[in-house]
């Protein structure tokens, strides 16, 4: 009885670790893909301009902020995992 409990506990922990790993990987990869797929933001249409800056210039700047937040959350997850080991 206790044995099966332990097993399920362990596999739950493994599942948690896997989930954390996937989340951290996505937090790192999504910004990198957004930056790298330039056609997403290669637009000079005046409707998308902000303070006179075309979309092409301001969109990556906004993503610098978003990426720092996402990378930081990933860092906290990875640091926590490392601490648990």
């Amino acid at each position: 009885m206790t044995e099966t409990k332990n097993v399920s506990k362990r596999s739950k922990k493994e599942a948690d670790v896997l989930r954390d790993k996937v989340i951290a990987a996505l937090l790192l990869l999504i910004p990198m893909v957004v930056f790298a797929v330039t056609p997403i933001y290669n637009s000079s249409s005046s409707g998308l301009s902000l303070f006179g800056l075309t979309f092409f210039y301001w969109f990556p700047i906004v993503w610098l902020v978003i990426s720092a937040i996402m990378y930081f959350v990933a860092a906290m997850i990875l640091n926590k995992m490392e601490g648990d080991q």
Partner: peptide, 8 residues
């Protein structure tokens, strides 16, 4: 974008 990718 280079800076954004580099730190990833």
């Amino acid at each position: 974008p280079y800076v954004g990718i580099a730190f990833g």
